[in-house]
Amino acid sequence: MCVNYRPPLPEQLDMVLGTLVDLYKDWDWPTETWKDYLAPIVRTDANNQRMLSLASYGMVPRRHIPAGVKVFDTMNARAESIAEKRSFAPAWHRTQLCAVPMTCFYEPNYESGKAERFGIGMEDDAPFFVAGLWREWREADGNPGTSFTQITINADEHPLMKRFHKPGDEKRALVVLPPEDVDAWLSCRHPDLAREFLRHYPAERMKAWAAPAAPRAKKVAVVPETGSLF
């Protein structure tokens, strides 16, 4: 389960998306993403072209949980139950797929005998994409908003990801998309075919390091409109 990650900086979007994105340089988001924070995601528009959005982390933002209902987390969607869980199933069956760009994500490591935050990223420090789902909401001011979740799979046997989470707990890993699969994932329009992308990224192309937590950044409250990248 991942609840915190580092998105690319605005000046890194050209490198991440492979096209000029000066249109979005006035957007802003915290340097680390936590529940209900805004962060960039990539999805496709009506012409099947990449589209960049700022979206709220967590499929059901806390502000949309009805009064009296116990607060629940939807930052991660388990691949095994994604087609049945009420929070995720509608978006999954409509293949509202997104790719979440990041430079690393964080997990707890207990190898020292106590929880220590570790960063996990690519061996070459390159930005990468994680498979996710998105949905839209009508916000209190009447404007549309977008939220997203990241998809996880069992990692009990993954050489790197099995090192994280509490001893005895099931190990989970985000679905890191190989660069050559990102566009195919985004354009996939059948849930059964989408499942073929839900597999592990090679451990030898990843790395992990101790990363003590920094103070949390202030949430970004303004949700801008989305736009086409091409």
Rank of each mutant, 00 (worst) to 15 (best):
E196R: 13
V3P: 00
H165W: 06
K219V: 10
A194M: 08
W137M: 12
L198V: 09
I82S: 02
T226S: 15
G113L: 07
F148V: 12
V176T: 04
Y57C: 13
K218W: 11
L97W: 08
W92T: 02
L97C: 13
E204T: 04
N154C: 09
T74D: 14
R199G: 00
D181L: 11
P101D: 10
P40I: 11
P90C: 03
E111A: 14
V130A: 15
G18W: 13
P30T: 07
L133A: 04
R43W: 09
A221Y: 12
D183F: 02
L174D: 12
N4D: 13
T19K: 14
F105Y: 14
G68L: 01
H158Q: 08
T103P: 07
L23G: 12
M1I: 09
W27E: 10
N4H: 15
Y201G: 03
Q12E: 15
G119V: 01
W209D: 04
A79M: 12
R205C: 04
K85W: 05
F128N: 01
E116L: 08
K219T: 08
V42H: 07
K207D: 01
R50W: 10
P101N: 09
P8R: 03
M15W: 12
R86N: 10
G18P: 10
G145W: 06
R195D: 06
D73G: 01
R205P: 00
Q12W: 10
R63A: 15
G119H: 05
H190G: 03
M15E: 15
D125K: 00
Y106W: 05
A208W: 01
K25R: 15
P215M: 08
P108R: 02
L9Q: 11
A211H: 09
S187L: 13
Y106C: 02
R205S: 02
P101K: 05
L186V: 11
L177F: 05
I120G: 00
D28W: 10
L160I: 00
L193F: 00
K171N: 10
E196K: 11
I41H: 06
A213D: 07
V130I: 15
R216L: 09
W29L: 13
P212H: 12
D26N: 10
P178L: 02
C2V: 09
G145K: 06
W27N: 12
A140E: 15
P10F: 07
R163T: 06
D22M: 06
K70A: 15
T152S: 08
V100K: 10
V71A: 15
P224V: 12
G168D: 09
P90L: 01
E32I: 00
Y57P: 13
V16N: 06
K162S: 05
R135T: 15
Y24C: 06
R195S: 11
L186D: 03
I120C: 05
V21W: 04
A131G: 06
E107F: 04
A83G: 07
R135E: 14
E139F: 11
E196S: 13
